[in-house]
Design a protein around this nucleic acid. Structure first.
Lengths: 254, 254
DNA sequence: CGATGCTTTGACGAACTTCAACGCGGGTGG
DNA sequence: CCACCCGCGTTGAAGTTCGTCAAAGCATCG
């Protein structure tokens, strides 16, 4: 399963990829780009539910989502799992495996998805020769850190509607940047996944969707979402509390 | 404030630093180590409460804690703050600023703390010439990612005692690795900070400490903590739920 | 020695989880 | 092609945990 899909040739060169501007090659010149191209494998597409890698798998490669979407999850002590991220095209996976040599998180496809495989050792040494590539890797890792930080923000002491609203806005924004509509889209993950990601029970997610719908903020029919009032959604995400008139309080004061 | 403490000479060379084995130089040979040494500044120690950098500050350097401890916090939309991490000696700060060029989080000292300042541009280009250094930077960034993931795990759907217990165990382990006692230590952060970090109210943190104490798991007198029953603490952290006899359930199934 | 900030404790209420049941849709097999 | 089944989503009611409010104790610091 980890073996066996090597030998697949790069079918789409980086320069011809629609993700060219968000992905690894940013800033890399044509000549060096072909060097990068040579080390990248394109694996057969993953079907919904299929694993890209599992918790504990030996770390060999990083992956970039090319199409579809992938979720990553961390195992909890007691056997439960916490979803750590939903990954859209252009996002790098597996960075958290570098330090220990095996994958601390698992990754599975939310829908049919294709990914590029980038053998880490090769990438790393290429990073020594190509400054633009090295810089981009650092930027991408940093971006990943940022994303987890905003996830932390979501999970720490916020109401259910703040969480869901912020989640939907983040998703919409990421879709927009990839050329999709930010007001009408398809949720590739289940309510259960969303709840897990947001630290809420499935039922709470469902009820909150219903409430948003009653308030005219959006329409959520199964997995099809239409956002009608982005401003109201932003209000729900940001500062529900302020509507009561209270001053924002600064915590973490010391 | 951002200016003005340059010109400070490196007083302690990396090779003479007690953190030599956890820090950046891991794997770097003597000759190259002196190159690294040359770009590192040692700033005057920070006093308790003093900022190392603030949210929005322009990104210039990474920092490594040399002694004491530092907390980082992310601003929330509504003016509140979420503490994203407590950093002990040997831990790298500011990595999340690489991608955007300014600091998304602020950092302030929890107690008197000294840090090394590493100008990023210089480090980055040094990374091109010194493979071992480059690899170590990647490993450290990856480790940071890991740490945030375990923080996520804590914040997602867990009871107050699970959170606090897991937090104390993590802290104890990190102290142990740095040569301190894992069973008796000083909490440099306030109850409020702990609560903020764990997504709990101050009062809940306090009450949970009291309960642990009543159960004989530990003694917490103000900031002085002694762990009496590490096994019980681990049980509280991991799988309180299992004591009811239930099987661990696998979520995030699809 | 007073002031200030941190910690603790108690009482109350709200938000969310849990438990339970049902509807819906999509996929599968007869 | 239809019927059944199973997973997913929704809804309601009850229960718990934790947050909020209030107040008081206690160290530290000026």
């Amino acid at each position: 399963m980890t073996q066996g899909n090597r030998g697949s040739q790069p079918r789409v060169a980086c320069r011809d990829c629609s993700l060219y501007q968000v992905c690894l090659p940013v800033g890399v010149e044509a000549e060096e780009l072909s060097e990068l191209d040579r080390i990248i494998h394109q694996r057969r597409p993953l079907r919904r539910g299929e694993h890209l890698f599992r918790v504990g798998d030996q770390f060999e490669s990083l992956y970039v989502v090319r199409s579809g979407s992938v979720k990553t999850y961390a195992p909890s002590v007691d056997g439960r799992e916490q979803i750590t991220g939903f990954h859209l095209p252009g996002e790098l996976l597996g960075l958290d495996a570098i330090s220990n040599g095996d994958h601390p998180c698992g990754a599975r496809a939310l829908e049919t998805a294709s990914v590029c495989e980038i053998p880490y050792e090769l990438l790393e040494s290429l990073g020594g020769r190509i400054p633009a590539l090295r810089q981009q890797i650092f930027r991408l890792m940093s971006r990943e850190l940022l994303q987890e930080e905003s996830h932390l923000l979501l999970l720490g002491r916020r109401g259910a509607d703040e969480r869901l609203a912020a989640y939907l806005m983040d998703l919409a924004e990421r879709l927009r940047r990839r050329g999709f509509s930010a007001t009408e889209f398809h949720l590739s993950m289940s309510r259960g996944d969303i709840g897990n990601y947001l630290g809420l029970a499935v039922e709470t997610v469902s009820r909150t969707f219903t409430r948003f719908q009653e308030e005219g903020i959006l329409t959520a029919e199964r997995k099809h979402v239409v956002i009608h009032d982005a401003a109201a959604l932003a209000r729900a995400a940001g500062n529900e509390a302020l509507e009561a008139g209270g001053h924002p309080t600064t915590l973490a004061g010391n």
